[in-house]
Amino acid sequence: MILIQGVSKKYGNKFVLRNINLNIAAGDFVSLIGPSGVGKSSLMRLLIKEEKCNIGKVFVDGEDIEYIPRGRVAQYRRKIGTVFQDFKLLRNKNAFENVAFALEVSGRSYRQIKDIVPKVLALVGLEDKANHFPNELSGGEQQRVAIARALVHQPKILLADEPTGNLDSYTGWEIIQLLQRINNFGTTVIMATHDQNIVNAIRRRVVALENGIVVRDQYAGRYIS
C-alpha cells in the first residue's frame, strides 16, 4: 500500500529524515514512535504531499506521489484520511457540516451527503451531537468528529498524527479502540505517537525513529525508550 524508498528530508541544512525505507501493506496498523522532533510528523506530511522529500521515492497505492501534479493533489488527499493532535476542525461549522465539508469538496450531491454523514457520525458514536459546534464538544468528541471526517471518503489509508496527544488517558484509549475498529474494516492505519502505554497495549507493528533514522521495525512490537 505504501512504499518508502531511501527517503531523506531536510529543513535548511538539518536532516529530519535520513534514508527511510518502509513497506506498509494494506490493512497494517503501524505505530510510528519516538520522542518529539524525531521526524514522525515530517513523514506524515510527506505522505499527504504537504511537503516534498529531498531524496528518495514515496509510492502510495502504486503511484509515485512526486509526479502527482498540483491540480490533482486535492483529489489524492481525498484517498487518505488524516487525524491530528489539535483536531483541525472548522470552528464555524458544526459536527455534521465539518464531516459534510469533506464530501462537498469532492462534489457529492446533497442526497449522498445526507445519507453518508449520519452513518459516519454514528460509527464514531456522535449521532446525537451532529448540530454541536467544536467549542461545544469535549476533546474526545472533537477527535471523533475529525476521525468521522477522515473516514467519510472511505479511505484506504488513515494517518493519525498524535491523535491522543490532547486527550486524557481514558478518552485517548477510546480513540485508539476506534482506530483499531477502523483498521479491522481493512483500512491501513499509520499512527504517530509517543504514548508508551498505548503502543504497548495494542501490540501491533512498531516503527521506532531516532534522529530521523528508523532504528527498529517490529511486528507486535513494544515501546522501548
Binding site: 504537504e50 486535492a74 488527499r77 464555524n92
Partner: peptide, 16 residues
C-alpha cells in the same frame, strides 16, 4: 488561515 489549511487537508481544490 487555519480554515484554509484544514480545507486543503480534507482535499478541497484551490478554487474551493
Amino acid at each position: 488561515r487555519h480554515e484554509i489549511e484544514i480545507m486543503q487537508l480534507v482535499g478541497a481544490t484551490d478554487w474551493f
